[in-house]
């Protein structure tokens, strides 16, 4: 399998705080990778490296190399960052649809990136909503506010919004942590289906979720990547004692 994302000895500092300590990882294309670990271990900070969302925080320093499709994404000019984010979509922890209509939420990314053709936008919106398994539920109320949807629907709308611009990577930061079990189940099903088109990286606190949806799992602890391997291996036969302690619930 081709390597989609590669990080070499990545360090991240928030001011004096050393949040990531020399992370090396190779993520294959069209797979789901789960990042697990206790709160504050650096897994979200690591996820946010890939679409340079950490840039928005003052006092962040990043060292090391982060390659997507063999391009160092921290060596590109500032003007290319928007283009990078078009390629690397993101779904946030809390559903955060815009206070716009359902249609406009999904169309936003298309318009922002210069699409004007009405037919094309409509087609793309429908496609994204179908991919997010939301089309049947919202096709008759596309002009309604996104805030009328339930939390689970809102999160699927956010997934559709991210997918509409056809990124090749989808970052998910605890996408189901604010949702009920049924909505969570739907999101997980969705992740499983999306794998054929996207490289997905998901941060999660939920062990079962990691083992259900992912092909690879990385375990973070205090800013270090303790273990990274196939999910089967991590959950059945981890190399490191710390990994085993964590997934068996002995701490965390």
């Amino acid at each position: 399998m081709r390597t989609k994302i590669e990080t070499n000895n990545v360090h991240l500092h928030y001011g004096d705080f050393h949040a990531l300590k020399g992370i090396n990882m190779q993520i294959p294309e069209r797979t789901v990778t789960a990042l697990i670990g206790p709160s504050g271990c650096g897994k979200s900070s690591y996820l946010r490296l890939f679409n340079r969302m950490n840039d928005l925080i003052d006092g962040v320093r990043i060292d090391g190399k982060i390659l997507i499709d063999n391009t160092d994404i921290y060596a590109i000019p500032q003007s290319e960052v928007d283009r990078l984010r078009r390629k690397v979509g993101m779904v946030f922890q809390k559903p955060n649809p815009f206070p716009k209509t359902i249609f406009e939420n999904v169309a936003y990314g298309l318009r922002v990136n210069g699409l004007k053709d009405k037919k094309l936008i409509e087609g793309q919106v429908e496609k994204a909503l179908r991919q997010a398994a939301l089309w049947e539920e919202v096709k008759d109320k596309l002009k309604k506010s996104a805030f009328e949807l339930s939390g689970g629907q809102q999160q699927r709308l956010c997934i559709a919004r991210a997918m509409a611009i056809e990124p090749s990577i989808l970052l998910m930061d605890e996408p189901a942590s604010a949702l009920d079990p049924i909505s969570t189940g739907k999101i997980e099903e969705l992740i499983y289906e999306l794998k054929s088109n996207f490289t997905i990286i998901i941060v999660t606190h939920n062990m079962q979720q990691a083992s259900r949806v992912s092909d690879y799992t990385g375990f973070f602890l205090l800013g270090e990547l303790i273990e990274f391997d196939e999910t089967k291996k991590i959950f059945r036969n981890p190399e490191k004692q710390q990994t085993e302690n964590y997934i068996t619930g002995r701490f965390g």
Binding site: R85, R86, G89, K94, N96, F98, Y108, V112, I165
Partner: peptide, 17 residues
């Protein structure tokens, strides 16, 4: 709320937009 700004940036929108 900043989450709206972040969602927009994450879709490749610039600051002005």
């Amino acid at each position: 709320d900043d989450t709206f700004r972040h969602a927009s940036y994450a879709l490749g929108a610039g600051k002005l937009r």
